[in-house]
Structures are given as structure tokens and as C-alpha cells.
Amino acid sequence: MIRHHRASTAIALACAVAGAGLVGCEEASTADSKPSASASAAGGADEAAEMASFTGTKKIKVEGRSVNVSCSGSPVEGRPVVVLLHGGGDGLDKLAGFQKTLGEKDRTCSYDRLGAGASDQPDGPQTLEDGGKVLTAVLDQVAGDAPVVLAGHSLGGLIAARYAPDHQDKVKGLVLMDATSPTQSADLSKEIPESATGMAVDLREQTLAILRGESPEKLVVPDGEVRSAGNIPVEVIQHGKQYLAAVPEYGPDLERAWSDGQQKWLAISGDSELSTAGNSEHYIYVDEPDVAVAAIERVVSKAAG
């Protein structure tokens, strides 16, 4: 995440801090998000069953937009489907190896959000509610009637945590891997004041712009309170290597604020736990995949009851 010149370092750190970065550090077939009215009940059921068990990569249609999805592994009776949410500036390709490993035990899927990877571009600025509609359509197709565990990295973690409280009938567990803080804009504005100079200014300005929707996803990410998703199992994993300390003068405070943000996410459930991946920077599932895999498998097992 740390690069060789001041500007590129600030951009790389903005990717991490915002979770909606500027850099992301099989031929598809098409399926409609809903069966056509002319499809027979049996045909629609067969199509849904096929979609909920396919492996590989497909393009699906969501409200007229093409969304790229990928799945590994077969459905396991009694166990939720794992759905991975990538960080900002990334796509499902970044998660491919991680998804394959998880798919050896549980059906695991991922998707490119609009404006990311091989999915269509959004028509304009997106809200979290807009993104939630796309996620719902993806879950309906790749998981069918099965419950899901959402595992999100960075911005993907924030999206998963914002989505779960309104979809407790479907989301039965969460794993948040260095998720963007629920109060990221306020945190950054507080820790890097207007009087700051140098790299810190670049970091603050670029990150706040990203959170206002000035990124390929055009996703506007406002600060907000952490809402409860009930007592579903939740594991929050934070990075252990203090890479944000690379920001002169303000680095230690940024690290503290990031850790505070991870603590805030614990309020999402009465059954939440926080752990630290000691040998990881921001990309925990890349630096310490075994840690992330173990956390997801624990949450899936708890959710399966």
C-alpha cells in the first residue's frame, strides 16, 4: 500500500482509509434478475436452482444493468452461502484465490459492484441504498432461498454492515475485514486538521472526495450510526501492521482512529468479536488468508447452528 513518492503514497493510503480507493491495488453468459412472466413455474424454478448452484463467472441483469458475479463450491445443506464484498478500487478478481479456498468447504460467491471490475458503470451517483438493491438481486440469484454470511473487506465491510440490519431474514452472519469506519469522514477531518500540510493534506482531500462519490463507483458514503442486526455472529478483524503511521506527524492518530472505528462496528450485534491480524496491513485476506478463512468458517458454523 505504501508507494515511493508523496502523492502516490497519499493515494494508496486514501484507498485504505476510505475503503473506496482510486487504485485497486470466461466469457460471461446472461441471466435476468427475475424470470420473465412468460416462463413456466417449473422452468423458472429450474433456472433459479441452476443459478443458485453454478460455478464460474456469469453476467446477470439487475434493473437493466450488467453485474459480474462469480461462485465457487457447491451448496451445503444447512450451511449459509458465503458472499464476499471487495474493497473500493478492487473487483472480484482480487478475491479469486481467497474465494476458491473458501469454496472447498462452503459455496462462496462474489460480485463486481457497478463501476467496478467487469460490471456496468452506474448512470450517476450511487447511494448505499442503491448498492443494497444490487446486492439483494445478487443474493437472490447466487444463494436462492439459502441464508448468507457476508464477508467484506474495507468499503465492502462497511456496505455489508450497513446492509445487514435491514435484511436480517437473509443475512445470518458477518465478517468485517479492516472495514471502513462508520464515521470515516469525521475521523479523518478530526485527525488531519485544516492547518495540516504535505502528504496529510493530500490524504485528507483525496479520501473525502472518494467518500463524496468521486470514484469509479460514484458511491456516496456518509457517516452514520452503527445499527443493530440482532444477535448474528460477527467477527471484526483489524490490521496489526501500523502502515498508516507512514503519514508524517498524523500517522499514530490515524492508526488510533482506525482502531476506534473497528471497535464501533462491534455494536452491530450482541455476538460480535474483535481480533487483530498481527502480520497484516490493510489486505488481511491477502497478507494472512488463513486468519480470514478461519474467521469466516467460524461465523458460517455458528450461523448454521
Rank of each mutant, 00 (worst) to 15 (best):
H4S: 10
T101N: 03
S70W: 02
L176I: 08
A160V: 11
Q141F: 06
A137V: 08
E217I: 03
E288P: 06
R298T: 13
E249T: 15
K170N: 09
Y285E: 12
H167I: 11
I296G: 09
D120V: 09
S195A: 14
V220D: 01
V83N: 07
L114Y: 01
A292N: 06
A10D: 02
L274H: 12
R3V: 00
V291M: 09
G89Y: 05
G44S: 14
D130I: 03
G270M: 09
F98E: 01
Q262M: 15
I268S: 02
E77A: 15
P233G: 11
E249F: 07
A31E: 13
I296T: 04
S74H: 07
V236K: 08
A45N: 08
I284T: 09
D271V: 00
W258I: 04
S53E: 09
E281M: 13
G88P: 09
T108F: 06
A209Y: 05
S29W: 00
G78C: 03
G270H: 09
D223Y: 06
R79D: 13
G224K: 06
Q184H: 03
L85A: 11
G132W: 12
V76R: 12
S40E: 12
R256F: 01
I159A: 15
G213F: 00
R204E: 03
A160C: 08
P147D: 09
F98S: 02
K302H: 04
V293W: 02
E47P: 00
A7N: 07
D271N: 15
A209F: 05
L85I: 10
S29I: 04
D93Q: 10
C15N: 15
A294Y: 05
A14S: 15
C109I: 01
L174H: 08
S185E: 13
V234Y: 04
L176D: 07
V234E: 03
A41S: 15
S259W: 03
L254S: 08
E255F: 08
C109G: 06
A31V: 14
S8D: 04
I296R: 01
P165G: 11
R107W: 02
D166G: 15
S228F: 05
V286G: 02
W258F: 13
A42H: 05
Q184F: 04
K170A: 10
K100E: 14
T101Y: 00
A229D: 05
S119A: 11
S53N: 07
S74K: 15
K100F: 06
I60L: 05
S189H: 06
M51Y: 04
V81A: 10
Y163M: 11
G157N: 08
E104M: 01
V67K: 06
D90R: 11
G43M: 06
L219S: 03
E194M: 00
A267R: 13
V293H: 00
A18D: 05
M199P: 00
M1L: 13
E273P: 00
G73H: 04
G132V: 08
D178G: 12
A304E: 01
I159D: 14
R107D: 08
H167A: 13
L203S: 07
A31D: 11
